[in-house]
Amino acid sequence: MLTELLQGIEAGGFLVIQDSCSYSGRHLLKSFINAALNRAEVVHVLGFDVSEEELKDGLRTSDTQRLHIHSAYTDPLGWTERPAFTVHQFRLEDLTDLVKQTPHPKPATLIIDSLSWILRHVTPPAVCKTLHQLRKGGAVRAVIGLLHADMHQRGTVGSVCHLATSLIAVAPGAKGDEAVAKITKRSKFRKVMQDEEIFSLNGDFTVTIHSKRSNPEQNWNDAEEEQVDPTAELTFNLRLSDSELEAKKKLMLPFVFSKEKLATLSQPAFLK
């Protein structure tokens, strides 16, 4: 499902990449930027966490006219004279203006690196409202945001993820460069699909998928097969030998009606 998402999320989609200190989701975010640039889309990046140079490192630099980075790394709160972008500009009107500054025929994809920085300085209801307006507004085609889940209270993370159409939660994998992505995707008809994939990122930010663990039913079948045989260590016999069987057949059970009983019962002594 990760490759499906990389191939493009639907218009009006909102993807959240949720990471923690144990594994950074920024590299995956960069692969999403690269994938969008490869599809000849216009990409606007709001950078708070890392500098512009660091963000551009590894991205396809040939497409610079379609990649617009609004860096708020050096001055996020607007303390100097001419800040490029501040956290207080994270409102629908300002963002629409920002995207409209560079006119393109196609609506752009907005990348937010990261939502955590914004959530530290703007109240969560305001952030959620802006995100929702962006989705519905039509100024941008899709929004992709990075969220450091361990920096916020659980309810805040839940509220932001509640708005998302797709959610990728990344965590370190078992082996060195591998990582586990838990993907939750809501389809247009409100069907929820979930998937878990192990992936690794290459040097040019392409994603290699190693294995899938999608079917919960399959897991269940596996678990059933592993069940131990209940007849393995019994203190009694389950099967009878031939002689035992013979003996058992000979045995007369007390309440079974038989010919002998009928004979006894029909004797005149009984009938009297």
């Binding site: 109240t123 959620c128 209270q153 309810g155 839940g158």
Partner: peptide, 13 residues
């Protein structure tokens, strides 16, 4: 009670 109603009920403890 969701954040879109402007309520921060679900965000903070």
């Amino acid at each position: 009670g969701s954040t879109l109603w402007g309520d921060d009920l679900s965000c903070h403890d």
